[in-house]
Amino acid sequence: MIHLLHSINSFITSGGEEESMYDIVMHHLTDHTITTGFIGNINEQYLNTKLFGIFDMRITRWVVMLWVAALVCLIIFVPIARKIKNARYGSSSKWVNLWEVLISFVHDEIVEPNFDHHYVKKAMPYFLSIFFFVLFCNLVGLIPGLSTPTGNLGVTAGLAILTLLGMIGVGMIKQGPVGYWAGLVPHGVPAFVIPLMFPIEIIGLFIKPFALTVRLFANMTAGHVVIIIFIYLVMMFQSYWVGIGSVAGSLMIYLLELLVAFIQAYIFATLSAMFIGSSMHAH
């Protein structure tokens, strides 16, 4: 047993002539700037300088994955919109109904409980977009050869920052620029607590999207790490018999990942809706 642990440890840490497990995991789960082909050319010619000195806009593998997910959204929903609009009594096509069910799900479970009745229609497009974009980002990584865009803190942070901006923006529009910041502190607290409460509420405001960022990232990364390690076990033990177990194990994790992809998209959209919806009223 100790021998096994020792050998695993040496496999993980050894750089050696073979790739270590750490290298493999990192290779699969981290971003790379694309240097070859058409996109490599564009990177070389137009995007080589950093925008405002901080934003390295060179197109990376993850950016392409984002575009894949966005493209899938467009390919699915633009024709669906036309079909739903034309079928007055509801389409009989299973494909259309599948997406209609998910759209109704977003309406009934995500937007409606968190927004006042007459804002539901205005809020729907944003949450439909965030739900399906995150969902397809999560699912893209389950296709062999592609990667999970949401398994990167930069991507999840970008989406969570939009939620944060949404909270502040909607709050300032609905409650007034001053009213919103004043309304962060709950009513009815004693006056001497306010100097203490205000920083706490400000921190809380930023912790909400931070939690969104980390939750989505960690959930989407963890499953991939486990799948990669299951597969790596075969190479580690140099045995076909281990393959049976590790393929079965990684298949199970894969199915779990499918479930997690839906759950995390739902959670991300629901929490965003909850945060933005609650910023409409002072508490």
């Binding site: 990192m26 789960l29 981290t30 971003d31 950093k50 925008l51 901080i54 934003f55 390295d56 806009m57 060179r58 197109i59 990376t60 993850w62 950016v63 984002l66 575009w67 966005a70 959204c73 467009l74 977009s129 965030i130 974009f133 865009p149 990167n152 803190l153 930069g154 991507v155 942070a157 970008g158 989406l159 920052i161 939009l162 990364t221």
Partner: peptide, 19 residues
């Protein structure tokens, strides 16, 4: 793993807003 790439972050925001 925990690297936050500002460029990727901005690309995410741009992609999502266009979408």
């Amino acid at each position: 793993l925990l690297k936050v790439d500002p460029g990727l972050l901005l690309w995410t925001v741009i992609t999502f807003l266009v979408l």
